[in-house]
Amino acid sequence: MSQAVTPSRAQVPLVGFVGQALAELGDAVVAVERCDERRGVARIDAERTLEVAKKLLAMDGSRLATATGIDVRDGIDVLYHWCFEPQGVVITIKVLAARPSLTLESIATHVPAANWIEREMHDLLGANFRNHPDMRRLILDDSWPEGVYPLRKDFDQVADRPPLPPVPPAPEEGVS
C-alpha cells in the first residue's frame, strides 16, 4: 500500500555518510530516491515511522529539523527532515499517510521536536498521528470549522474561506 507513490524502483547506490546512515535503517527503507554527499531522500515503510525515528535520533549529531506534509493523490506525503552535524547532511525520510485513514504512528512520543510539526500537519492537511501526546490545535483558530484543511490542494484561498466567527458583544458602558 505504501509503495503506491513510489514510481521509481531504481535503487540509488548508497555512498558516503548518507549511505551509511540509510543502511543502518535496514529493511525499513523501501526505496532510496537520492543519495549524494550532503543530501539523502528515502521512502520508508509506513508502519515503521517510530522505529526509524528512534534509530535516527540515536545517531551521533542527528536532530529533527522539521517535517513537510504534502497533499498528493494517494494521501498525505509526510517528509521528516533529519539533519546531521557536523557533516552538514540532510536526510529526508518520506512516508505516506494513505487515504482514507491518513494515519501514521506519531514520532513525537520519542522525538519532542516532532510535537509541534505533527500538530501543524494535522491542522493544515488533516494527517492523523496515532498516540500523539498532545493533539490540540496549534495553527488554526478555535473557530475554524472541523474538517476544512487549508493547505490541501483542493482548498481555494478565496472561495473556500470559512466565514469569520461572530464578533463578541461590546462591553456595556461604564464597565471597565
Binding site: 535520533l57 536532530r63 522539521t66 552535524e85 519532542p112
Partner: peptide, 17 residues
C-alpha cells in the same frame, strides 16, 4: 538535541551546530 534547538539557543547549550 531532543527538542531540535537551533542557533544561539543550541550553541549556548554546548551543541556546536
Amino acid at each position: 538535541k531532543a527538542y531540535g534547538a537551533l542557533g544561539p539557543t543550541a550553541r549556548g547549550s554546548g551543541l556546536p551546530i
